[in-house]
Computed example of a mutant assay.
Amino acid sequence: MGFVSPASDYVERRLNPEDLLTTDQSRIVETGTGYAVIEPVTKLSQGQVLLILSGGYTQFAKLQGRSLITDDGEAIEGEAMEEVEVMGRVTFFINRAREDDSPI
């Protein structure tokens, strides 16, 4: 019949960003151009990039004054802010190395 190859003892699993970049409190989210490392928000500060849940969709938004500015330039403010759930604070964006449009 055959035998089990001893090489299978030396097979390592493939490295992924979650193993390398996350801590007990952080997590990683795959984006269209790579990954984003997300940590819990303890205190909101101006200029922070946040992962938010709004209208059933997750998106990134920057805190500016009393409003959130999304990637497409839309401002979420006033009563619309009541429907927004902040999922966490983005600490790093990691671009894929294969992307020619964003080599850095």
Rank of each mutant, 00 (worst) to 15 (best):
G34V: 05
T31W: 00
D9N: 11
Y10R: 11
P6T: 07
I69R: 07
V11S: 04
I104T: 15
A61R: 04
P17C: 09
I52D: 00
P17A: 10
R14A: 12
R66A: 15
T33N: 10
R96Y: 07
P40M: 06
R89H: 06
S8W: 12
Y57Q: 14
R66I: 13
D24Y: 06
D24W: 04
R27G: 09
Q46W: 05
T33C: 08
F93H: 06
E30I: 05
I69T: 12
Y10K: 08
T58H: 07
G55N: 08
Q25Y: 07
D71E: 15
P17Q: 06
Q64L: 15
G65K: 03
E85Q: 13
G73K: 09
Q59F: 05
A61S: 09
T91M: 05
P40Q: 04
Y35M: 01
F60D: 00
L44M: 07
P17F: 07
E30C: 08
D24V: 13
A80P: 10
V29K: 04
A97W: 11
E18T: 10
N95R: 11
A97P: 11
T33K: 10
Q59T: 12
E12F: 11
I52T: 02
Q25I: 11
G47M: 05
M1R: 13
E77P: 10
L20T: 11
S45I: 14
L15C: 10
V37F: 00
R66N: 15
V29M: 08
L51V: 07
A97C: 11
P40C: 03
I76S: 05
